[in-house]
């Protein structure tokens, strides 16, 4: 069963094509990663899937309803949380919960149950009367997620939910996302953190409005990047990168912290080629040269670089 089916979705603003004919499917209960650079069309796509922006052409079935024909039903069946944590800072925790519960028409026992649940997942038991503005970012983020799904939607859209939150809170937040997914909620999430993308069941990558890769993280790493990746740990990585770029066995270079990642081709035989160039000819000390399993970041940089070179 698919909870989201996107068919040839396109959005144009005047002559500018923000989302260009993309199609994909999201399985019920999975964590679906939606990746792309800023301005790639992520937000526009999410807005269309949430039923607040009408597509120029194509359609998407979200939770069984067409965003084109029944946007209001779509809205009732989804939750949405943006990177801005749409909570009211001048209201207390409980007032925020009550407000969103009221917006979705919850009442009676259901309201009480859901309120308790939100307080629990946000670690805010007995802190209902705190002003939301005084909460730390990580707690606010959990509260925002709780209020976004207070009406138990089948699908929840998270638009960069972890931006601006410390790493420990982020890790805890992903556990929460996993819980949601395990309880059957489909989680559609965008993020800039590629290590977070590894937690997703499936991923798509868009660039300039076009879908350029899709699959689970493991497939993406093997299917889209056939060359080997060599990690080089050396002094003066920038200089070393400049030198290596000119070699015929190197396809692409990128810097990861103090290390260099090289995508190499068939002309690459072994690490002596690199050591010869760097330490012998240019006096750059090389500590380590290893072939590594590519990360998603390697894959995406490779994919996006190829795009821009076209």
């Amino acid at each position: 069963m698919y909870s989201i089916e996107v068919n040839n979705l396109t959005k144009k603003f005047g002559k500018f094509i923000s989302v260009n004919n993309i199609s994909f499917k999201v399985k019920e209960g999975e964590i679906f990663g939606f990746l792309g650079a800023n301005g790639a069309g992520k937000s526009t796509t999410i807005r269309m899937l949430c039923g607040i922006l009408a597509p120029t052409s194509g359609d998407a079935i979200v939770g069984g309803y067409s965003v084109l024909k029944h946007p209001d039903e779509v809205k009732l069946n989804i939750g949405y949380m943006s990177q801005r944590f749409s909570l009211y800072n001048d209201l207390t925790v409980e007032e925020n919960i009550n407000f969103f519960a009221g917006v979705y028409g919850l009442k009676g026992k259901l309201l009480d149950d859901r309120k308790k649940w939100v307080l629990k997942i946000a670690n805010l038991n007995n802190k209902e009367n705190l002003l939301t503005g005084s909460l730390p970012g990580g707690i606010k983020q959990r509260l925002a997620l709780g209020t976004a799904v207070i009406h138990k939607p089948k699908i929840v859209f998270l638009d960069e939910p972890t931006s601006g939150v410390d790493p420990i809170s982020r890790r805890g937040f992903w556990e929460l996302i996993n819980d949601l997914s395990e309880s059957g909620t489909t989680v559609f999430v965008t993020t800039h953190y590629l290590e977070e993308a590894e937690f997703c069941n499936n991923i798509i990558l868009i660039d300039a409005g076009k879908l350029i890769a899709e699959g689970n993280p493991k497939d993406l790493k093997t299917n889209y990047l056939l060359n080997d990746i060599i990690e080089v740990e050396c002094d003066n990585a920038v200089k070393a990168m400049e030198l290596l770029e000119k070699e015929n066995f190197v396809e692409e270079t990128s810097i990861f912290g103090n290390n260099l990642h090289l995508i190499v081709n068939n002309f690459y035989k072994d690490k002596t080629q690199i050591k010869l160039l760097l330490s012998d000819k240019n006096n750059i000390r090389v500590n380590r040269v290893d072939k590594i399993v590519p990360t998603l970041e390697d894959v995406f940089i490779h994919l996006l670089d190829n795009k821009t070179n076209d």
Partner: peptide, 14 residues
């Protein structure tokens, strides 16, 4: 300004 309008738009509030 606070971006909370986005949340309301996505909810079923008309």
């Amino acid at each position: 300004e606070h971006g909370t309008i986005e949340q309301l738009n996505v909810s079923s509030v008309n």
